[in-house]
Structure formats: C-alpha cells, structure tokens
Write a protein that binds this DNA or RNA. Structure first.
Lengths: 123, 123
DNA sequence: TGCGAAACTGGCCGGGTGGCCAGGACTTCC
DNA sequence: GGAAGTCCTGGCCACCCGGCCAGTTTCGCA
C-alpha cells in the first residue's frame, strides 16, 4: 500500500512580488496535506499574482500587428500569414519586424512567448 | 497608522476540480494570516488549477527534448541551444525535429505554443 | 494644408531553419 | 546476446527568416 491516504496538494508559486511570495511560502509551508512544488515540478494548482506595477505596459500594438501576432502564435509562416490576410509577404515581414521591436524579442518564437507571458495573446 | 502589522493575504480560487477546490478551501481556511476571497473580491493572489482531465495526453518527451524545448521557449536559436547544452547544432536540430514530430507542430514557434498550451512547459 | 502614423510593397542578402541521408556509442529490457 | 531506445554527430540542400535599403497610399489631427 504505497498509496498515500491523504494525497498531498502540490502548489506552485508564480508571484512577482517577492515579499508576498515569501509570506505565502512561509504560511503554506506549515500546512499539513499541502506542500510547495519544486521548480518545474507538476503542480495540482498554481498561485498566481502578477505585480500590476510590473507591467504598466499596455504595449501599443496596432490592429494589424495583433492580426499578425495571432497567426504567428498558430505557427503560421510569413507566407501563410500573407495569404490569410491578403497582403504580401513583405508587408508581413514589416509587421513582424515591428512586433519583434515592440515586444523586445529576438525572433518570432520569442515574440509569441513574450506576448503570451504578458497577456497580449491567449495561447 | 491604521495599518495592520500583519496584513492578511487574500486568496482567490479558480479551480475546475470541485474536490480539489474543497480540499484547498478546507486546508487554507485554518491558516492564520490568510483568508479566502469573497466572490468578486480583489485578491492578493489567485490559485489556479485547470481540469487535468482536459489534457489526458502526457506527451512522452525525453529529458534532452525538454532541455531543448525550454531553451526554444526562451527564443534561443539552434546555435545558442547547442552552445548552452554543449552539443552540436546538428544534434539540436535532431532534437528539434523530434519535438516538432511529437508535438505535432509545423515549426519551432508552433512547438512552444503547443507545449505551453498543454502544460508541458511554463511560459 | 501640411504632417505624422499606419499600412502596404519591392529588392537584396546573410544566416537560420527544417528535412533528408548516413553513421556510432550507450543503457535497458527481454 | 540481440533488440530497442536514447543520445550524439556529420553532410547536403531548399526554403524561411529577419534586417537593410527604398518607395507609395491613406487616414486623422492640428
């Protein structure tokens, strides 16, 4: 009977505010039947708290950039995006360039990751 | 100063699994310095758990593939990944190829998007 | 009416990417 | 002891990507 009679709940922390993270970790560390996840560990649930001051950036993306970004997140190539939006590949590259600039990304993969992180797009 | 010397942490719950939500609520209800948010109340942090039955697919990725995947999510190029892992670019491309195959992705951007969606990696 | 922002298009080019071929070394399982 | 799986490496090549240059049109705002 290797079965735990009281399966522990594993909680991951995603907290921008270090002070809050510390207090939570301290509080939750003493609760029976519950423990905090190791980095990268699969958790039953995640405690999320975005520091609102950490992202005052409603990154100003134009409508067209949002269109391109959404298709990029689908894994579409520039050619596909061009076809889908009815514009030329050159224009797509133009918008992608602006996206990389505004999102401070090194490539399209990075751009999608950044955008997802700051909630600009939903994966 | 009307400030409490120990301000309570207010936690909101966003849990799909009712059983897990119950257990968490029971556990956290007894922790001093912490309380659960009333519906609609502004919380310090939110506990999130998506329904695990929504993703029955434990995609079998090898450790090395996970390494490569994590670096891909950082926007690293094959060359950077190779340097970081101490292997050749050819090997990186090999692992990326396996990743694209297993994740059913058309490219590296699509791969990290898929991986993030099904919780294989955390953005 | 002029001016800037946004959107769009083109050519060019170095480097990155992904798919294909081939191979070897290692551990684990039957 | 052989088979399977993982990890690693190499070459080759078509294509894609991102950055550079240049230009046009359209729109709203001062």
């Amino acid at each position: 009977m290797s079965e735990d009679k009281t399966p522990q709940i594993v909680l991951a922390l995603e907290i921008d505010d270090p002070a809050l993270a510390d207090r939570l970790a301290a509080l939750l560390g003493n609760v029976a039947g519950l423990r905090l996840a190791a980095p990268g560990e699969q958790a039953s649930a995640t405690i999320v708290a975005r520091d609102p001051r950490a992202m005052p950036d409603d990154i100003a993306l134009t409508q067209r950039e949002l269109d391109v970004l959404a298709l990029m997140a689908e894994g579409a190539s520039n050619k596909m995006i061009a076809r889908r939006l009815g514009i030329s590949v050159h224009t797509v590259k133009f918008h992608v360039g602006s996206l990389l600039d505004k999102l401070d990304a090194t490539g399209r993969t990075d751009a999608v990751a950044h955008a997802a992180r700051r909630g600009v797009i939903e994966l």
